[in-house]
Amino acid sequence: MLDPLRHRYDDWLALDEHGVVDDRAEAAQDVRALQLVVRMERDSTPSWHAAVALSASAAVAVCLDPRSAAGGAWHEAVTAYCTGHIRKVTRRARGAHWGAVQELPGITLGCGDTQVRALVPGRAVDLDKRVSRLQVGGTDAPHDGRPVAPDGPTLRMWLPPQPPMTLGKSMAQTGHAAMIGAALLAEADPGALARWAGAGYPAYGIRADATTWRELAGMLADPQRAWRDARLLAVRDAGFTEIAPGTLTVIAQAPASG
């Protein structure tokens, strides 16, 4: 299912800023996106760390769900999405609106008071009104300390200290990272992918300090070697919102064998 991401990965990382802008061009009727919805009640703020981790887990879970496989109810939608640009849009919902999006095809994950739902991707022009009415703005939350990484197979993710990204933007980027990680593992280590899937695709994301980010980014100068030697991968943004085209937004380490 995620093979197209693997085939495009090296080429995408190699594009300069102008190449990113040219590559992202797409007719409006062809734009497809996976919607991420974060629950933001009036009296409850989601955890930044939990939200970026849940977005990663939920995005890849939708793409690799049995319903997305050949013959499944989601197969056509997910295949069309993965063969194009893997755009994601983060929206916020509360109360009845949160309940309404549970009626749409997708997967909801939670950790403590934080809940995220990843919806089966589709064309932007066909967006269900229960989703289109949800706000894209205001999807932010304070950075809440440093969580403990889960045991077992985990996608570890570092987000840059600069440029600053809202929680919503960060969630979209970690969703990209999880999909790329699964795509690369599917070829390099199907056993590791199976173990990660069996654990529920756990993820862990933090905002890196400047030194750590610089060291990790230096390793990505040779993406194939970074993947081969350390299971490192990177996400570069197309630059539609918040940040410049080609910005490195996530560096992640895929789960290892054994």
Rank of each mutant, 00 (worst) to 15 (best):
A50E: 10
T249M: 01
G71S: 08
R39I: 08
V60S: 03
L15A: 00
G205R: 04
P46C: 07
G181K: 01
D3G: 07
G175W: 02
D3L: 11
G138S: 09
A221L: 12
K129D: 15
G181R: 00
T166M: 10
D23C: 10
G175Y: 02
G175I: 08
L104T: 07
G246W: 00
E215V: 13
P164D: 14
V20K: 12
D229I: 04
L216C: 01
A197I: 01
W48P: 06
P121W: 01
A203S: 15
V89M: 14
P147M: 05
L159V: 09
R214C: 11
D10V: 08
Q173K: 03
Q253C: 12
A203M: 09
E26T: 14
L54E: 01
T45K: 11
I251R: 00
A96I: 11
R156K: 12
D22C: 09
D65F: 00
A53R: 05
P245M: 06
A221M: 11
A100Q: 08
P164T: 14
R67G: 09
E242N: 04
R195F: 05
A141S: 07
G72L: 06
A188M: 06
V20T: 07
G137V: 11
E76W: 01
R91A: 03
A53H: 02
Q102W: 03
